[in-house]
């Protein structure tokens, strides 16, 4: 018989068994693969120790992928945080039509990322896309957007910004609405300017929420894959080849699964720094 005290453990058991099978075991398996010269087209997979990692660090394409991922991260946060912050401020006010506008503004983040990448191909199309058309209307020249080495990463950033600024907006909005009102009242009595209130009150009070939003967004950007796959597949050349795309191509286009596993592990090492910070924030939120 199962005793009363044991019941909770049995409730957790299915989760643990499934996660052990589909997460823990594959992770260990992936680690062993990363120590082997594992080409899918070749039947034998000899152990080569850290060989895959050494090859990875010697590959200029890997370092390019690190650079592209870093630029993407900086570009996206630099655009989406201030934009989301402003839009959250707009939505925090009372205004006519709020009940319709608020849900509309949040829609993009629900849309399938592959679809977003495809919409990008439509909008940024060089010859007949609406964006170049509008640029021409205001007297600017057409751009090649995702077809040009210079602007391809920018195109990815703009598309992601369309999809994910709503995430920043919704998190920051929830943060703004939960702020206590007393400090604001006394600040007004003391005659603080709008900028002073923002700088000395809102930003410090919102710090945990801002950190959470930025970290969660950052963790997703570092793994960027779907939109880029559809829009450029890492190209032109390697202009938009993020770590995710690079690893995928190594493993499933060139069939060098061993090096792909090594790449994936390097990626997850980078992510684990962010995850640690994220967990710390969540722990303080729990209390």
């Amino acid at each position: 018989m199962v005793s009363r005290q044991q019941v909770p453990y049995f409730l957790v058991l299915p989760t643990l068994i499934i996660l052990a099978l589909i997460v823990v075991f594959p992770m260990i398996y992936s680690l062993t693969v990363s120590f082997r010269l594992y080409d899918l087209r070749v039947p034998r997979h000899p152990f080569i120790g850290l060989g895959n990692y050494i090859r990875l660090f010697q590959d200029t394409r890997f370092w390019n992928a690190m650079r592209v991922t870093g630029l993407l991260l900086l570009g996206e946060i630099a655009l989406q945080f201030p934009l989301g912050f402003c839009i959250a401020h707009l939505l925090a006010r009372k205004f006519y039509g709020k009940r319709i506008v608020q849900p509309i503004v949040l829609v993009p983040m629900m849309i399938t990322p592959v679809v977003v990448g495809y919409i990008g191909r439509l909008l940024f199309e060089t010859r007949s896309g609406p964006i170049n058309y509008i640029l021409n209307l205001v007297g600017l020249p057409s751009l090649s957007w995702h077809a040009s080495v210079k602007t391809a990463l920018l195109t990815v950033i703009l598309l992601d910004t369309w999809q994910w600024t709503p995430f920043m907006t919704s998190v920051l909005l929830a943060g703004l609405l939960s702020l206590p009102s007393e400090p604001y009242e006394s600040a007004k009595v003391d005659g603080a300017s709008g900028f002073q209130i923002l700088w000395y009150l809102t930003l410090p009070l919102l710090k945990p929420v801002i950190a959470l939003a930025v970290i969660m967004r950052g963790l997703a950007v570092i793994q960027s894959f779907d939109v880029i796959y559809v829009l450029t597949l890492g190209g032109p050349g390697t202009a938009t080849e993020t770590l995710g795309i690079y690893t995928y191509l190594i493993g499933f286009r060139y069939w060098d699964v061993g090096q792909a596993a090594a790449g994936a592990w390097v990626l997850s090492m980078i992510l684990s720094i962010g995850i640690t910070v994220f967990l710390r924030i969540m722990r303080t939120e729990e209390r």
């Binding site: 594959p26 793994q223 995928y248 493993g251 994936a264 997850s268």
Partner: peptide, 8 residues
């Protein structure tokens, strides 16, 4: 990261 699990 799905890319870690997808290989194994």
């Amino acid at each position: 990261p799905p890319i870690v699990a997808v290989v194994p």
